[in-house]
Every structure is written in C-alpha cells, then in structure tokens.
Design a protein around this nucleic acid. Structure first.
Lengths: 372, 372
DNA sequence: GGATGGGTTGAGAACCTTCTCATCATCCCG
DNA sequence: CGGGATGATGAGAAGGTTCTCAACCCATCC
C-alpha cells in the first residue's frame, strides 16, 4: 500500500514473481525484445493481466534514451494554419508510434528558446519548429548538434542545416499579384504583418542577391518579395502607400491598416492579404465599408479557410497543403530518427494552388464570366 | 564519447565532481530542494554552466512519480473549438509549470480508450478529456481510481465522479430557440449531429426525469433538449421533419440536411445550428440556395467563430467562453494535483452569451431596427 | 560545559525499466 | 559422440535523478 492507502501499482518484478520467472524474462515477454519461450510469454501475460500491470514508459525511456515523443513548437495552436498542421503531424506521429508535446511560441524568440529548452529537458526524440526568427536559430542548431534532430516547418533558414517543409511563398505571391496586374490593376495593396519593421528590410528585399536566396526570409518577407517582383516584371511601379505593414500579428491591426489604405484619395483597386489573420482583419474592414467586391475591389487572400466560400462573393485564395505539410514534416523527422545518418538535410517546397473564385475581376469591375 | 563519437552529455555526477561536492548536494543546488550553502550553490551552478549540463527530467520523473505533464484528449484539435480550448489549457499549464501532451479521439470511443492508455503509460499527472460517449467512461474512472485525476471538458457524465467544466447547452439552446419562437417563428429547424441515432434517444429526451439530470446527455442531446423544451413551453408543436440529424460529424452532412429541410414544401422560417461544423455546412447550403437572411430565414448558430461577422448579414450566435473553459479545466486539474484531497469534485457551468447580430428577424421578415 | 537545535553534507538506496553477459539446455551435423 | 550453433534464462548493472538518513558543524541556551 502506498502512503495514501491505494494499492501500489504492480511493477515488472511483481509480474515476474507471480509468473515465476526473472524480471528480465518478464520484461522480454512484455516488451517484445530478446527471445522468450511461448510458455513464459503466456504465463507473464497472464500475470500481467491479473495484476493489471501497466508499463512505466518513463523508466524505459531513461534506460533506452528514447521517449517516442516529438516536440512541436508552433506559433499559435489556435490559428487554423497551425491547428491543421498539428493535426497532420500528430496523425503521422501516432501512426508511427510517437506522441506529440506541443508548445506555443507566439512568434516570440524568447518563448521559442524556452520551449525548445523544455522539450530538450523532457528528452523528446526530435523537434518540429516554426522558427520565430529565421536569422536566430542557434538554439535549434545546438539541439541538433547535441543529437536531437530538428525539422523546420513553414520557414527555412539557411543558418541551419536541417530538413524543412515549406511553401514557396514568393512564387505564390508572385503568381497571385501577377494575375491582378494582368487584369489591369495598377494599384494593388498588400496587407502584411512583418514584425520588425526595420528600415533595412525594404532594402534587403531590393537587393537581388538576397532576393535570390530565400533562406534568409520569413514567410511574410518572401510573400512581400513576390509582390514586389510581380510589379517589377510587369513594369508597374510599387506604391509605398499601398504596402501596409501591421507591425504586430493581429487581425485588428490588419483591420486598421486596411481601413486606412481604402480611405486613400486614390484607393487600391485590388488587395492582397498575406495570411489568414490578415485576411480576417482586412475583410472585416472591406465589409464594414460596404465596398463592392469584386466590382470596386478585387481580393486575393493567402490561405484557404472554411469561411472563404461562405462570404459573397467567395474569396479567391492561395491554398497551402497545410495538413500535408505537417504530415510530411513528421515523416521526415521520424525517418531521421529511425535512421541516424540517412541523407543530407533537404528543403521540401510544397505546391500551392491559386483557387480562383469570385472576388477577382478585371480592373474597372465586370464580374468574370464564370462565377462558381 | 558515445559510440557515435559525440561527447556524452554531462550528468549530475559529472557536475558534482567538477564542483567538488557530492551528487546529492549538486542535485539539491540545481533542483532547488533541500538546503544548500550559498557557496556550494555557486560552485555547482558554475560547474553546470561549464559542462553545459542539461537536467534529464525523465529520470527525475521516474524517481518522483511526477512528470509535470497533463494529458489532453480532445475530439479534434483542428476544430476551432478545441484549438482555442487547448490554447486556454496550455497557457495555464505553462504558467504553472506543466506541459501538455495532446491526443485526438475523433469522437471515437476506441481511440479515446487508446489515447488514455497511452497517456497513463507516459505517466501524465492528470488528464483533461472531452469524452466521446458520456455513458462509457469506465476507462476514465479507472484512471482516476488509480490516482490520475481527470477533469471532464465540454461534457459531463454522472457516471464519473470528477470535476467538469461545461456549458449549460440546454439552457443556451432553450434561450436561442425561445427567442425565435417569441418572434413568431412557428417552423424552426435544428441541424445537429447526434452520432448514434438510436430510436430510444428521442424517447429519452421526452422523459422528464432524464431530462432533469443532464449528466447523461451529450452536448448535442442537451441542445436538442433545449430546442424541444422551448417548443413545449411556448406551446408550439415540434415538427419531426424540422429536426435534422446528420448522424455523422461532418460539415458536408449538415449541408445535405440543410438543403433537404429547406426544400420542404413547407420550409422552416428559422434555423438553429448546433455547433461550428454544423454551422459551416448549413450556411453553405443557405448561401448556395441564395435564400435571403433574415428576410426569408432567420439563423442562429451555436459557437461564435471569427467569420460569423464577416458574412452578411452577420450571424446571431450563442458564444461559449471557450478559452476560459480550457483555462479553468486546467486550473482545476492542477489544483487537484497540488492538493491531493481538496474538495469533492464539482461541475462548473460556465455562462454562454446570446450575441444578437443581423441574422434574426421576426417571422415575415422585417430586418430588426438595430443592425450592428 | 553539556544539551538542544537548525542548517549542511554525503553515502547509498530507490524509482522501474532495459541491456549485457554468462550459463545452460537443446539440437544439428559430421 | 564431440563441436558448434541456437535459443532461453536469470543475475546484476545501468540509466540519471531524488530522497532518506545519519553525521557533522556551529551557534545558542541554560
């Protein structure tokens, strides 16, 4: 009996004793390693059943050094993007016998560091992380060099030799914005967070050399770059007042910025929102102002959300394979866990799809011929 | 060096040796238990820093029996409801020094059993669970009697003596439906999942005795009961053809059912959807059919989602304090962990709010005077 | 000056597994 | 029938921590 009066849970020696074998044999019988006779296996199983034995996987982990757990650091589990990705991760993980320990960084580097620290203390076998700052990944590098593999998710960093699963945000944004420009739009607004609005950011994006290697860019920066390039290639000048940064990652800020940009003397005829939170805020502003979409304003949003088909007109969006991205990240991590030195780390770029619905029209405003 | 060539991580004895103290002393110094002199504390800290010591919390857990981890069994992490609740849970958990191990049951009893089993193997300190079937909770009862406290979330079961954090779904639904009836609606449809459409369910809900103790009802059943009661109290007969069950928990099914109910010769003038997935499906049908809301159809939805203000007209909804529910569940669980025998388990009913927006009008169809 | 008591300290057990290794029985084969 | 391979078994170490306990120091108090 424990001090609390509850009967203590049966342990391996208890089972072994009841079955009349050694602890080692009982362990083998239940753990499925080593070799045991059929007879012993049966007796041990029976004893375990009788005692309602429940293996303590913690103890096993101390011994083996494996916990069959993968740690996930996401920005915010509440966001549909991460929620769905996590579903992909945990489905694959479960299938392969792993659990998932989830933490939120809220896009804050310090929280992320703390989270990684915690995961390492808890001895997770590997980590999937959406790094808050792709230029500050030393903690991940250290985890990795200490033997805990890392897979980057949603964001690459060329300062870390690790697998990564991402989307080519630059290409996707380019494609969407190019489409708008081709339809004759000359004033296309973009609503983006972009946390540190360092003045040199803008310059960085203009630098063709940096622009060529997206490993230094956050997703938002990459998408902004796509926006800029589409303009350059189309020979349309970029209007500074149409590039709206919220500075903070919040729908409300996007709402404010959108109201402001739509209140310009010379307002945009199209707007591109850079992720789901920005879309929510921007769309609220558009709706509140009662602006006719797509007649007066065309809208393209990054990320497909279930409500984008519920509003009228339905939103044209860039859809990322979010679930699959999560699943693939988990697959890669687990592959690396199983096979210590498989192949050199690689970045997987997954395809996005531009889903044309009803919120885009040629400038001037006729609705396109084929609404859906 | 480990076989792999990497230097082995420093352990407590290593630190102790470098600091020139016993392992026990080093453990005390770093772990913050027992008593140590200032001098020792400093030397140990310095040694730990030099060796880049990282505590193995697994080993500690084996010894202490605590893992500072709480297990969560939710139906589907991808649903906005659970995603937000999980955020509440993990915020509180983190603040109090706990991690969260997350599993999905997909509303399937077998998966839930498996998940609980896994959590127990991993020795979580406690479990927060949204049980798939409130009448089958033996596995949770066993976990609890074995010393792993359980807090029910979103659903009560009177077959389990445990804390629970829920919403009074019956009252909420009653309130919403009553409002519709008071506005003159006589044909109010309800779209609900309700997994096992056992024929006796209906009878159960009619039985006043069972209806009095909601501890046997799933949230969907409770909400249906609220719907029924509102009718009884208002003296409005319940039309069987207006009660639409999807049988399966999917937006598509809700879409189908909604199309069907709206295609009746004598269609409803109002519709009540029972949770977020049902709302998405039902609203898609309404939009596709081009039915004017609220002029021809009033709409009330359970659960407030970010898009309910983005559609026009904005949806009138019943809002649950989802984040707070998660947070409170975590608080209760942790309180019980800290204090083995605090008070008897209790069910906390949290308040819902009926948020009136633009999707409800008196029957016949004028828009109400105060749109927002 | 001895008793009391609180703060420090280290030895070693404990937690519950897995793993190594030596032992032993069995079996196959030449 | 000897030699070697194969498989089953148990003793005991290992994994990295926490905890118990006895010993010790030193100050205080009578």
């Amino acid at each position: 009996m424990t001090p609390s009066g509850r009967p203590r849970r049966a342990t391996l020696p208890d089972v072994a004793a009841l079955a009349g074998v050694s602890t080692a044999a009982a362990g083998r019988a239940l753990g499925g390693y080593g070799s045991v006779s059929e007879d012993v296996r049966r007796r041990v199983a029976e004893a375990a059943r009788q005692l309602d034995y429940r293996a303590n996987r913690l103890a096993a982990s101390v011994r083996t050094g494996r916990t069959d757990t993968i740690g996930v650091v996401c920005a915010d589990i509440e966001s549909p993007f991460f929620a769905r990705a996590l579903r992909g991760i945990s489905d694959v993980a479960r299938e392969k016998g792993f659990s998932t320990l989830v933490t939120n960084s809220d896009e804050d580097l310090a929280s992320e560091r703390e989270a990684v620290q915690l995961l390492l203390h808890k001895q997770v076998d590997g980590i999937i992380c959406a790094p808050a700052d792709v230029t500050r990944v030393d903690h991940l590098a250290r985890a990795q060099s200490d033997g805990t593999p890392v897979v980057l998710f949603d964001r690459v960093s060329d300062r870390l030799e690790a697998d990564a699963v991402v989307v080519d945000g630059m290409k996707a944004a380019y494609q969407a914005v190019r489409r708008l420009l081709d339809l004759g739009h000359r004033r296309v607004a973009i609503v983006t967070e972009l946390r540190q609005p360092r003045e040199q950011d803008w310059a960085r994006l203009l630098d063709p050399e940096i622009a060529a290697s997206p490993g230094e860019l956050s997703p938002s920066e990459a998408r902004l770059l796509g926006y800029l390039r589409a303009h350059w290639d189309a020979g349309v000048p970029v209007r500074r007042e149409l590039v709206r940064r919220t500075g903070t990652y919040a729908a409300d800020a996007a709402y404010q910025q959108t109201r402001r940009v739509l209140a310009l003397k010379n307002p945009p005829t199209a707007i591109f929102t850079v992720d789901n939170l920005m879309t929510v805020g921007a769309y609220r502003a558009i709706r509140e102002l009662g602006i006719a979409v797509p007649d007066r304003l065309s809208v393209v949003a990054f990320d497909d959300l279930d409500w984008t088909v519920l509003v009228s007109p339905a939103l044209t969006v860039i859809a990322q394979p979010v679930y699959e991205m999560g699943a693939e990240a988990a697959r890669r991590l687990i592959r690396r866990l199983r096979d210590p030195q498989p192949e050199p780390p690689a970045t997987l770029f997954m395809d996005v799809a531009l889903i044309e619905r009803e919120s885009v029209a040629p400038v001037g405003g006729q609705t396109p011929a084929t609404p859906r």
